[in-house]
Design a protein around this nucleic acid. Sequence first.
DNA 1: GTCTATATACTGATAGAC
DNA 2: GTCTATCAGTATATAGAC
Lengths: 199, 199
Amino acid sequence: MRTRGPRRPGTQTLSRRQQIMRAGLAVFSSAGFHGASLRDIAARAGLSQAGLLHHYPSKERLLRAVLSWRDDKACRRLGDPPPDGLDLIHRLAERPTAASAREFVQLDVIVSAEGTSADYPVHGYVLERHARVLEMVRRSFERAAAAGELRPDIDCATAARIVVALMDGLQLQWLFRPDAADVEGDVRRCLQPWLTTGL
Amino acid sequence: MRTRGPRRPGTQTLSRRQQIMRAGLAVFSSAGFHGASLRDIAARAGLSQAGLLHHYPSKERLLRAVLSWRDDKACRRLGDPPPDGLDLIHRLAERPTAASAREFVQLDVIVSAEGTSADYPVHGYVLERHARVLEMVRRSFERAAAAGELRPDIDCATAARIVVALMDGLQLQWLFRPDAADVEGDVRRCLQPWLTTGL
DNA sequence: GTCTATATACTGATAGAC
DNA sequence: GTCTATCAGTATATAGAC
């Protein structure tokens, strides 16, 4: 049991799970599912390929684990309770600041792209996540509308589609040219004309 | 020489190049560079893998050929001379109507995503294309601004970043749910508040 | 220009020792 | 829980006949 529990914070060693998730993130994010190799991930996690498959019995299951690990982190980053209305939308547009930020963004971009194929191993997951995000943003707009922060002629579903698309596209631009992109600012500027606040 | 020239329109047979480009489009668009196999592409084009490599000496060169073939078609679709100002932007937001439309969109999405990695075989091409599109849209906004169609407080570089990102993101949404997406309409709605036209 | 055959390398996954 | 060894499959690319 001792090996399963999380180590004291500040300790040098990471749990096996942490090591594997980080290695999986690094490899899947830069090569996608198709381009990634279990041997590469295993080596980065400090164990053999067979050792890796002991923890996650297939490449697909490993990717699923990395994705749900990512989802957990993303949820936790939003805070508890998560923000509401326009606050949530601005929060989603903030780039994470950790050193692994780029990897998380890249993982999202590449898995989303690969996941558009119906025969992708985690196609269903990608589809559902896309719908879930869209729905979450739509609800946020509806809360904002109920609070009178949104101009009454704005359709919440449309606004959600536009903002989510914008974030996805700006993420890509940020990956290509981190210095030339301004994710948070551009989202804010796109949003502005829809708001009731005078500015 | 006879085999090189394009066949009479309406003829059943396609040139080898056409066959290979179409097969490459189909496979690369659904699996990306990493997930595609030359054998698969060759089989769809109706020849052996070695036969395919006679025309394009490596997988990378084949992808390059498919991408520049795609670029040619995209350019030609814009018309000659290409539209200007806001017309160009609205034109870019129109989905192509051919049966292979989905494949072209998917190729763009997956190659862009894979291409964010610095060690991707055609990373340089993807990067340059991204910059080229952004620049083209920025110029279009500047022409529109010069024609007085744009509100004077709109920054053209910002508008270009936002519109390009929006198109990329809406493309992705269209791939996931073709019925629920409205690429052309959403671009128009996002653009509207920036225009001088009263509506 | 197209083929078969092959070289060489790597893939995901399994078996079994420790 | 981790390893070595291995299997069967597939990959890209090349050689050489036709």
